[in-house]
Design a protein around this nucleic acid. Structure first.
Lengths: 235, 235
DNA sequence: CATTATTGACTAAACATTTACTCAACAAGC
DNA sequence: GCTTGTTGAGTAAATGTTTAGTCAATAATG
């Protein structure tokens, strides 16, 4: 990220400033994730960086700007999307397993940002917008993938806008529980969970031998309009 | 609010107090959900209730106690668990569809509390504990249900600690996206999503005709130890 | 029953802290 | 010597909380 090639010396001054800025962003991210945007104070950030509060305002015009700077610095929407490029020519199971695992890896690696965004998404409209568009991108790409695999005959026809949601939902739920609800629940590795989710889902969508079995079910997956069996009471 | 002046209705005082307490809890819940625990101030609660801030401290010793009072008043863990008693003798699909739909209904009805808890779960250790134990209960019950249905032959053997997580995860994800990411994503009704999730998942776990098809997959669902196909690169 | 005493819902104002933010002054690399 | 990183003292607003006091509903008393 530093362009030192053409300029002679790194510029010790500039480098130090850059380092400080980076340090502040890092500390801010950590505190934002741990205590929330309001819970994390300028004072504590300064204390942790061993500087005065005033200096923070030399680098960032306001706390709000610090927040958005943190977002810009650490947001990984693009990486999330480009991760989907790995959906190559392998068999569906392998492709989904691969992407699912890396999705969980990425969430875990960036868990601080994830927590920050998810906790604040209701208060901060901008967060909701960002998050929403990223997710839309992911779902869109996954839908395309499903369609491709349907065309290839690997999957049977179904509502390809919903299957990615079930898949990603399961994964995200795993992440959330594993991260926040402590050792209570999760004793299962990301790989194993992903593998299970993929297998379970694929065998529901796999075309192999199930296709002819029960056409009403296939129709239901595609349309989603026919009731399951009888009417369902709503007490 | 006060209308009777001469009518001597015993306990009028007490009733009014009770009503006020209830009103404060309601306003607090709404504000907590909208702005977060820190974002919602005692002053604004008082303003919305058209009383003075001091009065709040007549009813609740501190803001923290107000928070826990709100939790106690509105928490629906029990209702969530008892909802699972509806898992009766119907066919699996119908049972899961029923429970899934009502789960989403309940989440939506109590969405304020849900948002409050999920946003604050990282800062407030108590929240995490409560949420964790409730979820444990749900998953436990669902696991038992799955086992029952396996015994009946409706489902084929699989890791019954994982299937509920995929199912609930998908549903919760739907709820979250639908609630927070606004009209962006969701144009699909709770019923339809639930129906899809159930169908997709069941046909992956249903024993009907798939059983003999690919025994390696069945084994994989149960153990989760065999890799999908080849090794998965970890760059 | 009428009068008095006591409770308890409620207000107004101030309290002590904490908050984000400012600014003049200074130090130090360029 | 000019730019810039850094300080330390400072401010106004906002926060949770407390205090002193008002007044009507209730309970006790004669």
């Amino acid at each position: 990220m530093r362009r030192r090639e053409q300029e002679e010396e790194p510029g010790q001054r500039r480098a130090q400033a850059e380092a400080r800025r980076e340090q502040l962003l890092e500390i801010a991210l950590d505190l934002f994730a741990k205590k929330g945007l309001r819970g994390a104070t300028i004072r504590e950030i300064a204390r942790r960086a061993e500087i005065t509060e005033g200096l923070i305002y030399h680098y960032f015009a306001s706390k709000d700007e610090l927040v958005t700077a943190v977002m810009r610095r650490y947001h990984f929407g693009p990486r999330l999307i480009e991760l989907l490029d790995e959906l190559g020519d392998e068999p569906v199971e392998e492709a989904l397993f691969r992407v699912g695992t890396r999705f969980l890896e990425l969430l875990t690696e960036k868990r601080q940002l994830v927590h920050m965004v998810f906790a604040e998404v209701r208060n901060n409209p901008g967060f909701g917008q960002t998050l929403g568009s990223v997710m839309m991108g992911i779902l869109q790409r996954l839908t395309e993938f499903m369609e491709e695999r349907i065309a290839r005959g690997e999957l049977r026809p179904h509502d390809t806008t919903l299957s990615p949601r079930v898949f990603m939902g399961g994964l995200f739920w795993y992440f959330f529980v594993h991260q926040n609800l402590t050792p209570n629940v999760a004793l299962v590795t990301p790989e194993r969970f992903t593998r299970f989710a993929v297998s379970a889902l694929l065998q529901g969508l796999g075309s192999e031998d199930l296709r002819g079995a029960d056409e009403s079910l296939t129709a239901l997956l595609a349309s989603g309009n026919t009731p399951i069996s009888s009417k369902v009471g709503t007490p």
